[in-house]
Design a protein around this nucleic acid. Structure first.
Lengths: 342, 342
DNA sequence: ATGAAAGCGCTAACAC
DNA sequence: GTGTTAGCGCTTTCAT
């Protein structure tokens, strides 16, 4: 038996196509009892709307916007690459994707960018930004105008975002800690932690998870205070050597993200590739090469392509008022070793 | 500027819609020069076909078939679950998914199942089966009738399948070996390997990769001959204890897949959860619990949900003659630890 | 070998 | 409040 269509619903409910359509799209101008009658028919005959036909008739594309930090760092480049790829693919499926890069240092700039969006045409916004009061207001405003909002990579738990697409960073930190602990072994040793900036929510959450598991399971390890490197190779090269000199017992380094290039350079120039276990974050050209040649022992990552596609699906589902497949949208914490880089 | 449509192509090329359609769908009855003219116009104005509108007009669903082993094992159950989930979702996107379970012991039964498919209505087949001459013939026959074929989980490299959707099992074995080696440490020790059946291509490839890396990087480890457990808990309980008794230096166990339940039982009853490092395959209720309580140290897995969705996308793309996004269809070798189970 | 026209499931003027 | 109708981009008879 063929799938029921709006025609079947209209006939069975004894109303016209237009009325069915009004009910389906929650448009005004239908008597409550008519609405009820239509809904009753819908789930009696098991009607489910053909979204693609609807989009065809509507002649309306999905208008999506990605807002992200205007970074030069490897992470930003990777993310931009994944979005560009999605833009290229999107031509065939009625989807327009805009990408806006904003200086994240200035909360007002972020808010202005969001405020500048035309809520009448934009269906959804995916955003990666630090949580500020200004951002919170800007997101609330978008939601009031019926624009879907998802946070990506780094969550905005106190904003009215519809969804978060990214990994659980506390769990990521715990994963890193578990690997570091097991790789280093059970003899007493010190561990150094490098961070881009502890202001970034993802970095501080990773650090939290890392500390949790080290103290739970690896009491022989001493974690030294975080060195903040501002995602800047020069700073790594300036600070790391002296830290290593002051702590000759360092057997492990955990890099929370950012600064991989500087880290690799220092390890090489000091001939420490072999003797120190290094766990880092994000798969980039640098970290991949470091994994291949043994400088890094593991990289914790998330698949940016997946994050971007997932954000797009969630945003579209929101506009179409259909639900997502949670198992498809769960972003995994990838553990990358030299052997499973594939 | 709006996306060009068939109308634009027809007008610009000075032909009718029907002719454009014939060219687009490679149907006969068009003069070569007309074909050329249409194609010229198509890429001059940058026309790209709207697949959803085409499907709407065609009134044709995607008819897909999954063929898999009629197993009771945890792996089979997981796979069936993932396919059922896809079936549930498929109602809304013009996709009918059939699932056929076959006794894989009998190559003729598999071939008969494939031969029984109506090539006129079936668009694509996803199959997990051991490679046999009979299967090879059956697949060739499908391909001759324009049915798309993908191998899933376990590749069929000598068949004319269009694509393989699954992990590189040699790399998976290497990944397992690397983790086992690093977790066990550098003192001399023995390692036990458990296999479902060495006839299964995926298991033998994993073993190969495992042996490679152990000999390359962990010379202190001695890998004992494989114990074949036929995916049977009773066999594990019968064979493993004596193997452990004969080899008191066993510090690591690598389970290639299947038999997790028996393995866990033996380890518990011998009080070896802590002292032996265990790496296994596939995320199931059993292996998840074993990871949580520390009996297993790592599980190498592939996301069956992803495999199934990916196979569906590839099969559809094939019917629509469009290309897939390779990065979306690459199945990752997941390294699961207690901390990143999600 | 080519074209005209109807129709897929849905939406949106516009009419009543 | 509700119905009629044209049309989205494409395919497919049926003519010519």
């Amino acid at each position: 038996m063929a799938r029921p269509t709006v025609h079947d619903v209209a006939r069975d409910a004894g109303v016209s196509l237009a009325t069915v359509d009004r009910v389906l799209n929650a448009r005004p101008g239908v008597r409550p009892q008519t609405i009820a009658k239509v809904f009753e028919t819908i789930d009696r005959i098991g009607y489910v709307r053909d979204v693609t036909a609807a989009n065809l008739a509507r002649q309306r594309d999905y208008e999506l916007v990605f807002v992200l930090p205007e970074g030069h760092g490897a992470l930003a480049r990777k993310l931009v690459g994944a979005i560009s790829e999605a833009q290229r693919r999107s031509r065939i499926d009625r989807t327009n994707i805009a990408m806006l890069q904003v200086a994240m240092g200035d909360p007002h700039a972020v808010a202005r960018t969001l405020a500048g969006l035309n809520a009448a045409t934009v269906d959804g916004v995916a955003i990666m930004a630090p949580e500020t009061p200004q951002l919170r207001d800007a997101i609330r405003h978008l939601k009031e105008n019926n624009v879907a909002v998802v946070a990506i990579i780094s969550d905005l738990p106190n904003c009215e975002r519809d969804e978060f697409v990214g990994i659980n960073n506390i769990a990521a930190g715990r994963t890193a800690g578990l690997l570091l602990g097991r790789f280093v072994g059970s003899n007493p040793a010190e561990v150094l932690v490098l961070a881009g900036s502890m202001l970034a929510r993802d970095h501080s959450e990773r650090r939290l998870g890392f500390d949790q598991i080290i103290s739970e399971r690896f009491p022989a390890l001493t974690v030294l205070p975080t060195i903040e490197v501002w995602d800047d190779a020069a700073r790594v090269e300036a600070l790391l050597p002296s830290a290593l000199a002051n702590h000759p017992d360092v057997k492990g380094i955990y890099c929370l993200g950012g600064g991989n290039a500087g880290l690799v350079k220092v390890l090489r120039s000091h001939g420490l590739e072999e003797s120190i276990t290094v766990i880092s974050h994000e798969l980039t050209e640098t970290s991949k090469a470091a994994l291949m040649d043994g400088t890094f022992d593991a990289v914790i990552a998330q698949d940016f392509g997946h994050v971007v596609r997932s954000a797009i699906r969630v945003l579209k589902a929101h506009r179409d008022r259909i639900d997502v497949n949670p198992s498809q949208e769960r972003i995994r914490i990838d553990v990358l070793l030299r052997e499973n880089l594939g």
